[in-house]
Write a protein that binds this DNA or RNA. Structure first.
Length: 514
RNA sequence: CGGGGAGUGGCGCAGCCUGGUAGCGCAUCUGUUUUGGGAACAGAGGGUCGCAGGUUCGAAUCCUGUCUCCCCGACCA
């Protein structure tokens, strides 16, 4: 067994945070912008986000939700109507106060005092309030319900500490907003959105998640219930990858969203909101990345197959290119995971062997190199990103199918890779969930200093609220732990609360989190 | 926002303490030789040293302010 020369300089196990950043730059996904907390998303990173948008948007539309677009700027007064909501977001809002700049006489520009806005505008941190405004106008009778809207947008939250994709001041997301006649219907929609996110995460992103309800202290500001999908990263930390909120009538009261029922009475609507953001890209990296860079699940890869001709700057190149073009066309005629294959014939100048590593770092699922000898034999040299190395030789594990065989097997390879990445991540997660810790001493021990890759612990608790909950949270905080969620479809509690010793009422996950 | 670290060609760094007008590796360009596995050799191009002030005959280097990034903490759907 020879030493493998990996495509990245930092290994996950040596410094996970540094490794994460190296993947982003080595895979050419994004870069720093010079603006605090904001990033430039480069074509490969944005291409992955566009795939996420496409696949989730299809699911959103299948649920009868319509896309619309609402303003970036929200009047301050609009925001003040829901008390818990204001309190939750006030500390992190960007505010626009002027609409004109003037010269300061020293070569610079300053806001014109004469152009101060009567009422400041907030850059949306989320759009419940302004969409609620529209809903109050659009909904008159029970016939207008349910109203199901979604928008793809950027939002701004002035975060103290940012990390590319995981927490940026400006980020991209979708936010679904629905209004319903009854609490029951609204809760059905809350759970529908949650299940949609679970399916999207697991089937499209190959990201195993645990769906469940957030405890009271983790609720969205103004929500009655907050549900989430939680994923385990390779360092054992948890990442909230999507949320769905049952808002009750809180926002309907604030924005006066009412409908006339069949008996002629005026009733408040029950509203729901749900969101998934570019943070999912960070989750993808920390779940599927390895010591050679990113591995993009085939369903999300902007290019699933990259063909690299081994050009030699000689007349024979023309025939080789022709051979590769035929291969490209043959592959492009195939389908995988329900869509036509996305194939790139990379004819940029440069040696195939050097370009190969660019695509390995980017995580293209299948790389096919073709040289003159392959052409003579009617074969290709095929490399799978999920099985890169021959551990006996320490070299890339090329296979050599014929062109016809390659065209036929690539769809199978991609489908296998999609499910293989999911299975690998799910097995890793299950291996790192602990369920038999029943007291704080055990919890402290598990998360002690000598544990380098702690996972999650499923505990039983008595679900205190108010001061009792505060006390529990400070116990967790001492271990740098947070509550994640109360998983669905798990056996009922049968023990005592790990925090209070009282009879437990449910099971909940605790973990370190992003 | 508090503590710590850092900003020098595209990337990674040295130089700073002890001021004298910028260097190395990789990458890039050109040429030659190579050619089935992350090519070699030679030559070349590219930087007002994050930004703004100050001290000085002279500032990447010293001083002040400021912006951005990284780590820890607080905060955070």
């Amino acid at each position: 067994m020879s030493a493998i020369r990996h495509a990245l300089s930092i290994k996950r196990e040596d410094d996970f945070a540094q490794w994460y950043q190296e993947v982003i730059s080595a895979a050419d996904m994004a870069e720093e912008s010079g603006v605090r907390g904001c990033m430039v998303i480069k074509p490969w990173g944005y291409g992955i986000w566009e795939r996420m948008q496409r696949l989730l948007d299809d699911r959103i539309k299948q649920a009868g939700v319509q896309n619309a677009y609402f303003p970036l700027f929200i009047p301050l007064a609009n925001f003040e109507r829901e008390a818990a909501h204001v309190e939750g977001f006030a500390k992190e809002m960007a505010v626009v106060t002027h609409h004109r700049l003037i010269a300061d006489g020293e070569g610079g520009l300053v806001p014109d005092p004469a152009a101060k806005l009567e009422e400041p505008l907030v850059v949306r941190p989320t759009s419940e309030t302004i969409i609620g405004d529209a809903m109050s106008r659009w909904i008159q009778s029970w016939r207008d319900l349910p109203l199901k809207l979604n928008q793809w947008a950027n939002v701004v939250r002035w975060e103290m500490r940012t990390r590319m994709f995981l927490r940026t001041s400006e980020f991209l997301w979708q936010e679904g907003h629905t209004a319903h006649a009854t609490a029951e219907e609204a809760k059905v929609e809350t759970m529908r959105a949650l299940e949609m996110y679970r399916a999207f995460a697991e089937e499209d992103v190959a990201l195993p998640v645990i769906a469940g309800e957030k405890p009271e202290n983790e609720r969205f500001p103004g929500a009655r219930e907050t549900w989430s999908i939680e994923a385990m990263m390779q360092d054992g930390k948890a990442l909230q990858a999507g949320t769905s909120h049952y808002l009750g009538t809180n926002f309907a009261e604030a924005a006066n969203i009412r409908y006339q029922d069949r008996e002629g009475g005026q009733e408040l609507c029950h509203t729901v909101s749900w969101g998934m953001s570019t943070r999912m890209v960070g989750g993808l990296i920390m779940t599927h990345g390895d010591d050679d860079g990113l591995r993009v699940p085939p369903a999300l890869a902007p290019f699933q197959v990259v063909i690299l001709p081994m050009l030699r700057d000689k007349p024979e190149d023309a025939a080789l290119l022709e051979y590769c073009e035929a291969l490209r066309a043959s592959l492009a005629g195939q389908s995988a995971l329900g869509e036509p294959l996305r194939v790139l014939l990379d004819t940029r100048p440069g040696k195939a062997a050097a370009k190969r590593w660019d695509w390995v770092r980017k995580g293209a699922p299948v790389i096919i190199e073709v040289g003159g000898r392959d052409m003579e034999n009617g074969v290709v040299s095929l490399l799978r990103r999920d099985a890169l190395w021959d551990i006996n030789t320490g070299k890339p594990a090329f296979e050599n199918p014929t062109c016809e065989a390659a065209a036929q097997t690539v769809p199978t390879i991609l489908a296998g890779m999609q499910s293989g990445l999911f299975t690998e991540a799910r097995d890793r997660r299950e291996a790192n969930i602990i369920r038999d810790i029943t007291d704080m001493a055990g919890l402290s021990e598990y998360y002690g200093e000598d544990q380098h890759r702690p996972g999650w612990v499923e505990v039983q608790w008595s679900k205190p609220s108010g001061e009792g909950l505060e006390a529990v949270i400070s116990q967790l905080k001492a271990l740098k732990l947070t509550f994640r969620n109360v998983p669905m479809n798990t056996p009922p509690a049968d023990g005592s609360c790990i925090f209070t010793g009282k009879p437990a009422v449910e099971r909940i996950y605790v973990a370190r989190a992003y």
